[in-house]
């Protein structure tokens, strides 16, 4: 008797928790899409931002800045992260001091609030290195932010490569670098791509470290040394400055674009992961 009651309580708690999560998710998505979708049109996506001409104002510069930011930070972080992970799994002695120190660093880095990265980026990249408020400063800051994620997930993907592949390759007289290049990296590729795409989501999602380093100038950046405003920063700016109802609507429309972008990235991750998995099996 007591058993069945306990079971029922546990079951209802589990169901309650699960449904609450789903309700909030659906509610939030519905809330944003309902308020924002009707303001998303071609003009909104393709036009320049304008404070005065509200009707023809758009977010094209922010989309461009976001794309710059993603490409640049991934282009810097991915090679460094993958090479670090290769060093940790393939070259360093397992359990050695170097490995422990690097692992401690990446784990600590992963736990630091992102605005602190922003503060560091502002003092170091913007001021000390003299890069100014620029896409490059922002991308370098975000590089440090996403490195731990890339290193960690790539490491796990590399460790998961069966020992039998390595033995097979070394058994044929292949060198270490050849083995890594031809067998280990290709086998770990699905995991590595997942980590890169997750990091892309992170880059798109961050706001504080970005406006502290890349600034908020709302036009298409001339070069990576120019300031730019990403979509997330734009959203932040709109909601903190709320002068008119129009700003409010634009904020929701921007949020809609962001959500669609993030959902699309998630979808692409899954598709690529599945395709690559099929290729290896």
């Amino acid at each position: 008797m007591r058993r069945t009651i306990e079971d029922r309580i546990a079951l209802s708690l589990i169901w309650g928790g699960a449904s609450l999560t789903i309700i909030f998710l659906v509610w939030m998505l519905w809330h944003i899409l309902a308020n924002g979708l009707s303001y998303v049109d071609w003009t909104f996506i393709s036009a320049n931002y304008s404070v005065t001409d509200k009707e023809n104002s758009g977010i094209w510069p922010m989309i461009v800045s976001t794309i710059y930011m993603v490409i640049l930070s991934i282009a810097i972080a991915a090679p460094i992260g993958i090479m670090t992970a290769l060093f940790l799994t393939e070259y360093a002695k397992p359990g050695s001091k170097v490995v422990k120190v690097i692992r401690f660093c990446t784990e600590s880095l992963a736990g630091i609030p992102s605005i602190i990265y922003g503060l560091f980026g502002m003092t170091f990249f913007v001021v000390t290195l003299g890069l100014g408020f620029s896409i490059l400063s922002g991308a370098l800051t975000l590089t440090i932010l996403i490195l731990p994620v890339i290193i960690r997930t790539t490491e796990e993907a590399l460790i998961a490569v069966p020992l039998a592949y390595r033995e097979g390759s070394y058994g044929l007289g292949a060198s270490k670098i050849y083995t890594i290049w031809r067998v280990i990296l290709p086998s770990a590729m699905p995991g590595i791509i997942t980590s890169v795409i997750l990091s892309t989501g992170r880059v798109i999602g961050e706001s504080a470290p970005v406006f502290l380093t890349a600034g908020m100038v709302a036009r298409i950046p001339d070069s990576v040394l120019d300031s730019g405003r990403t979509l997330t920063v734009h959203l932040y700016k709109l909601t903190t400055e709320l002068y008119t109802v129009h700003d409010w609507n634009q904020a929701y429309a921007t949020a809609t674009v962001l959500i669609v972008l993030v959902l699309a990235i998630n979808l692409v991750t899954k598709l690529i992961g599945r395709r690559l998995n099929k290729a290896t099996y």
Partner: peptide, 19 residues
């Protein structure tokens, strides 16, 4: 590497590469 080119090996479980 040169030694292993002269002395080939076949393992307990078939381990073809994923290619």
């Amino acid at each position: 590497g040169g030694l292993r080119m002269k002395v080939g090996m076949v393992f307990q479980k078939p381990n073809p590469f994923p290619m």
